[in-house]
Amino acid sequence: MNIDSLQRGLVIDHIQAGKSMEIYKFLELDKLDCSVAIIKNARSQKSGKKDIIKIEDRIDLDLDVLGFIDPNITVNVIEGGKIVEKKALKMPKEVVNVVRCKNPRCITSIEQELPHVFKLVDDGRSTYRCIYCEQEYNSKK
């Protein structure tokens, strides 16, 4: 399958196979006017299969959100058809209103105006916990 190579824009690479739509939604890429290509199950030397998202514009990406979903993702900045910058991601200490707490007993389930805040409690296991009820969110699961 051929996808035109980018002259200028961003390539979100090394996405865990099957996760690209989730990232598309998290980053609200549906709101962009430029071309966006989602490549699912591309061949990967590291993991066998991977997803890739190509964006034909240099938009401001929320790297915290990407790092929260998967810190192994890489973001390549393309200018003149070449990679001019590789952005490494890391897990943010805290994410606000990225995921909602799923605990039906959490105060956020009844108080709509509360921000949904998750704090990183274990880097190794990528574990985040709701600051109110301590419900776990693991981005790798």
């Binding site: 105060i107 956020t108 600051i131 109110y132 301590e134």
Partner: peptide, 28 residues
């Protein structure tokens, strides 16, 4: 005392002069 978990924490986050004690929040 509140049936929802984290309720007392929300109270504490919004308090300015009063001291808040969690007297039980849900199963938490």
């Amino acid at each position: 005392r509140h049936p929802k978990e984290g309720a007392a924490k929300v109270a504490a986050m919004n308090a300015t002069t009063i001291k808040v004690i969690n007297a039980g929040d849900g199963g938490h």
